[in-house]
């Protein structure tokens, strides 16, 4: 973990998933990390621009990376799997091909944008707090024990695969979320779909295919006795939380399992004010029992 990061919350945390942004800022403050704002960045393209306009994708990625570089930041902190993969994938392509980087920088110069010299790394919050000094720092602020809370970790795809671009841990048997769940005093629940897809990238274009995927983690986590699912990805969160109703109709059974952002779980253990978590922004509501186990007062935030 570093003391200063260029903070790239991405589209979802800035728009429909604002509760992730506020929880992240709160936990960063507790950890004494400085998050440097990036006011001029665009969307990472979410894989969609990579697929539709690959050259444009590399250009806008270089512009984002270049901005971090010009702010004097060596590392971009991401709180989204999709941003993490897309920025790292572009970064690898740019760092490995000097001719490509030169051409892109010429174009960026021509339009008056920041150029990129190739010296930035992109790290996900999960990686920063699940090992090394970041993990120690988190343990020292995790003052509340979430004893009795059964947490099903859901990794999502694009923080694990392809490992030649992500490479933080074994993509078939990741343990970083489990480590953090334990550090919170909670109990990690194991189930096979924790490394599979939530279906979100195609939930609009191919709803049935996506819901067929989404049902698996919901069903398995509930069957394994989890109180909540925690995920490091706002897209997975949106899928598991907001599309849960559709998944339930699709599967013909109720799940009713609340979904936490990683920063919310960490924040609860760190004793952060419940108002930062903005639980009322969740579509699948947290029951008073779950809130009690999360040690956030159930009187607040049970509206709706």
């Amino acid at each position: 973990m570093q003391e200063r990061y260029a903070y790239y919350p991405g589209c979802l945390a800035s728009l429909s998933q604002k509760e992730l942004d506020s929880s992240t800022r709160a936990i960063a403050q507790k950890l004494d990390i400085e998050l440097v704002e990036m006011p001029s960045v665009t969307c990472c393209g979410a894989g969609d621009i990579h697929e539709a306009k690959p050259d444009y994708y590399l250009h806008i990625s270089a512009r984002i990376l270049g901005q971090a570089e010009q702010m004097g930041c060596e590392t971009i902190l991401s709180i989204c799997n999709v941003c993490t993969l897309n920025l790292r994938q572009a970064n690898k392509a740019l760092q490995e091909d000097a001719a490509l980087l030169n051409r892109i920088n010429d174009n960026l110069k021509e339009v008056g944008a920041a150029t990129y010299q190739g010296g930035v790394d992109i790290r996900h919050l999960l990686w920063e707090v699940s090992e090394g000094n970041g993990y120690e720092a988190f343990k020292s602020i995790a003052v509340k024990s979430l004893e009795g809370l059964k947490v099903a970790p859901f990794y999502g795809c694009q923080i694990l695969r392809p490992s030649k671009i992500l490479g933080f841990e074994n993509p078939d048997n990741p343990q970083s979320l489990e480590r953090l769940i334990e550090a919170c005093g909670a109990e990690p629940i194991d189930y096979p779909a924790k490394v599979k897809c939530c279906g979100f990238p195609i939930v609009l274009a191919r709803e049935d295919v996506a819901l067929g995927e989404l049902v698996q983690p919901l069903e398995q986590a509930v069957e394994a006795g989890a109180d909540v699912i925690v995920t490091p990805c706002p897209l997975c969160h949106l899928s598991l939380d907001a599309w849960q109703r559709k998944a339930a109709d699709f599967a013909g059974k109720e799940f009713g399992i609340p979904i936490l952002h990683l920063a919310q779980l960490l924040g609860a253990a760190a004793g952060i004010e419940e108002s930062e978590f903005k639980f009322k922004r969740h579509v699948t509501r947290l029951s008073p029992e779950v809130k009690a186990k999360l040690q956030v007062p159930s009187a607040i935030g049970t509206e709706a």
């Binding site: 589209c11 979802l12 800035s14 728009l15 429909s16 001029s40 960045v41 665009t42 969307c43 393209g45 979410a46 969609d48 621009i49 697929e51 539709a52 306009k53 444009y56 806008i60 195609i202 609009l204 274009a205 191919r206």
Partner: peptide, 25 residues
């Protein structure tokens, strides 16, 4: 294809305003 139209919203959003226009998606 719906998939292509989905991708196009991401492309257009970036040069129109920066972040994704979720409501257009």
């Amino acid at each position: 294809d719906e998939g292509a139209r989905h991708a196009k919203v991401f492309v257009d959003s970036t040069f129109k305003g920066g972040y994704l226009r979720e409501t257009e998606l």
